[in-house]
Design a binder for these strands. Structure first.
Lengths: 214, 214
DNA sequence: ATGGAGTTGGAACGTCTGTTCGCCAGCAGC
DNA sequence: GCTGCTGGCGAACAGACGTTCCAACTCCAT
């Protein structure tokens, strides 16, 4: 990465400082005011460079849609315990994660090593896979999948989806295509399925798969 | 704090999940869509209650100006560290585990949680899978396989085998059939291969597979 | 029923905010 | 001189977004 121009460094510093004060991100005009820049276009110009250089990401047309990369507050969490709240299989209803269940003492749990811990490690839960219906996602009978509730999955995310009409749970890669959704098996040899968005409920995003063979 | 209404709990869950996915906060309309609410005013109404009850804070007139109050980390236990001594791919020679390598400081390692630790946990090593040639063992590009050296594998064990003639590494279930060996893909839809015993070198037995998706 | 409190639905208003476009100033190379 | 490049400026546009108002609906005690 080439060294940043003063302006860009100034803007980056401002965003970081702002981030420390609020949990939302600054708007272009707030950056403008904070760095005493006289036009929003200058901010846009430099933020665009910062994005190109990989210092941050932007979501187009979204207010305050800046995301700092490498912003993990990650205070070296050593080992976190994730409850296995049920099983997932094609044709049986999917367990819905509820905070109430997590307090229960009799739930089995699995621990995640640091390498497996996602940046955001809140509200994780795990499911045991029953049967071979997830085999196109490269997931075997007995595997443990670790999930995180997701508000709106991004294209390419591996998600646990419930097909309402078919009454079937499935693990596939998620792609939005207009008002329909393409679910793509992880196994490149297999064909995707495309369904209307209203037929799909996404319960979570797969953050890890664990298979124990001995 | 009084118990939350379902709507409010739903909205709170959505905001938390959303925040796991982005570093900025959801807009009112995104909450609306994500919770399948038919009006933004309903969102506003309930978010107002959540604010009054102290679950979050809002900055008036600011896009995505919601802030969650309170964030917390987690405890820890024990875990063992396994060195990743190389990569495995069809066609490239398989790294041989040597105690000498393990002392090296620059080797990457992966930690195994207690649930993944086999009873016999000595001399474990791990390999990173390159490419899609192990897909019939339900193993994806980038997966980590944890192995234990084995003298004579038992039938049904998943082993890392080196096919001498083909110069190919592979992960398959191991079955002895007289003076030949049947290597059976984990994927039940795929066909086994049968080779003479002298064409197979077994480097280790797979005790766990770890896949990280985020 | 009856009324009121709690909640939802629909729509509109006005502001907030990202984005774009044209223009200008310096500066290096030819 | 001309040209291209970088960086800054100002204004305007279009869409994103918070907010508000009002009608309607549910539920429950009266």
């Amino acid at each position: 990465m080439p060294p940043l121009r003063p302006r860009q460094q100034q803007i980056l510093d401002f965003i970081r400082a702002y981030r420390a004060d609020h949990s939302y991100m600054p708007s272009v005009r707030e950056i403008q005011a904070g760095c005493t820049i006289s036009s929003t276009s200058v901010v846009d110009y430099n933020v665009r460079i910062l994005e190109r250089e990989g210092y941050l990401r932007r979501s187009p047309d979204i207010s305050r849609g800046i995301e700092l990369v490498g912003d993990e507050p990650e205070p070296a969490v050593e080992l976190i315990s994730v409850p296995i709240i049920g099983a997932i299989a094609a044709g049986s209803p999917m367990p819905v994660p509820e905070a109430a269940q997590w307090a229960a003492e009799d739930v089995e749990t699995v621990s995640l090593p640091p390498e497996l811990t996602p940046r955001q490690a809140e509200n994780l839960y795990a499911l045991r896979v029953k049967g071979y219906s997830m085999i196109d996602a490269l997931i075997d009978d007995g595997d443990i999948v670790v999930l995180r509730p997701t508000a709106d999955p991004r294209d390419g995310d591996m998600v646990a989806a419930w097909l309402k009409l078919e009454e079937e749970a499935t693990l596939k890669r998620f792609y939005r295509e207009g008002d329909r959704i393409r679910l793509q098996p992880a196994n490149v040899q297999m064909e995707p399925i495309v369904v209307p968005a209203e037929n799909v409920a996404v319960y979570g995003k797969v953050v890890a798969v664990i298979r124990r063979l001995e």
